[in-house]
Structures are given as structure tokens and as C-alpha cells.
């Protein structure tokens, strides 16, 4: 199997190159179940977090532990945008997005309970990989709709196109 070697802080990983759609493969970076990479990336990204940021916003699932570590290290709270609507949510706000790793439209849902944590605040979006930017675009829409200001985007990797607006620890090629 072909792999792509990456460095995250002091740790090195050989990422498998896997097809995700006809004619498209990615170097699969999955932090779920990788405690060392999550800790290393979280600590490095916490150092890069602009001091004026009030709150972190992350989409579930793969970046969840990353947001937890950045929050723990920086002392800034974090809010998770879910991919399904939960029965206990209060006035949830939902957006649809097409993700490259799922290939299908998926829902992003913000619990109304979390809105006051975002409204009037400077927000940093936290994700594992920013690729096509579809998720990022939808997250930005939801955050702005509830009165938050996206002041930074933090990711472990950008993928495909270079994205100067994203603070990342590295870049992954897209195999087409």
C-alpha cells in the first residue's frame, strides 16, 4: 500500500493513500484513536491561536478530541457542531454540506443552547483537515448567522489547494 509521510510536531505518521471517490484518493489522516498525534497537534495549534479568540468551534467527529486539547491548553471554551439533530437541542440551526470523505450531503447542526457562546464573540474554527472548504463554508455561515465573527481557522492539515486563510501545521496532496 502506498503511503504519504507526515510530521505533526515531534511525531511522524505514514498515512495510507485511499480512494474516496472515483478518480480521487486522499492521504487518510484520522486522529481518532491516535492519542499522540492529537496531543501533539493540539498543543502546537494552541500556540498558534490568536489571543483575541473567545471560543473554538469544531464539527464532530474526527476533530473533537483535537478541540478538547486546544481548549484545555488555551483555556478557551469549545462548542461542537453536530452532524445529527438531537431531541434535546433547543432551537437548533442546521445547514447541509457535501464532504469529500463522505461523498454525500451531510447536516451540520448547532444547538440553540450554544448560540450565546458564539454571538458577539471572536471564533476560531477548528478542524482536522480543510480540503474543498465545503465544511468550512457551512460552519462560517452558521457562525455568522448567529452573530459570531470567524477570526481564525485552525487545522492540522490543508489538502489540495493551498489555503492562506487557514493556520495549519502542514499540507496534504490530493491524488486525482
Amino acid at each position: 500500500m502506498t503511503t504519504h509521510t507526515v510530521h505533526v510536531g515531534r511525531v511522524t505518521r505514514d498515512l495510507p493513500i485511499v480512494p474516496v471517490a472515483p478518480g480521487v484518493s486522499v492521504a487518510l489522516f484520522n486522529m481518532l484513536g491516535d492519542t499522540d498525534v492529537t496531543e501533539e497537534a493540539g498543543r502546537e495549534l494552541a500556540k498558534l491561536l490568536p489571543p483575541e479568540i473567545d471560543v473554538l468551534v469544531t464539527p464532530e467527529v474526527k476533530a473533537l478530541s483535537l478541540a478538547h486539547v486546544i481548549s484545555r491548553e488555551s483555556g478557551k471554551p469549545y462548542v461542537v457542531i453536530r452532524k445529527t439533530q438531537k431531541p434535546y437541542m433547543v432551537n437548533p440551526i442546521a445547514r447541509e454540506v457535501v464532504s469529500i470523505t463522505t461523498g454525500k450531503p451531510q447536516l451540520l447542526v448547532l444547538d440553540g443552547f450554544d448560540v450565546p457562546k458564539i454571538r458577539g464573540h471572536k471564533v476560531a474554527i477548528v478542524d482536522d483537515v480543510v480540503s474543498s472548504g465545503g465544511t468550512l463554508h457551512s460552519l462560517r455561515q452558521i457562525i455568522e448567522e448567529v452573530g459570531g465573527e470567524v477570526a481564525a481557522v485552525l487545522a492540522v492539515f490543508t489538502e489540495g489547494d493551498e489555503r492562506p486563510e487557514v493556520t495549519a501545521l502542514g499540507h496534504l496532496p490530493l491524488y486525482t
Binding site: V18, G33, T35, V61, L64, V69, T101, T102
Partner: peptide
């Protein structure tokens, strides 16, 4: 998930996580 991450980091034991949806990259 964040709970298990912290438990893993504090205990030094690795962890594995099951999902509730199929992902295209699963092998």
C-alpha cells in the same frame, strides 16, 4: 471521545474508536 482521549493520554494506553456510520475510507 474527549473522555477516552484524556484517559488514554493519562494512562498511556492507546485507544480505538468505533463509529456509528460507514465511511468511504473504511477498509
Amino acid at each position: 471521545l474527549p473522555l477516552t482521549h484524556e484517559l488514554s493520554d493519562r494512562s498511556g494506553l492507546p485507544y480505538v474508536c468505533a463509529r456509528k456510520k460507514r465511511r468511504t475510507y473504511m477498509r
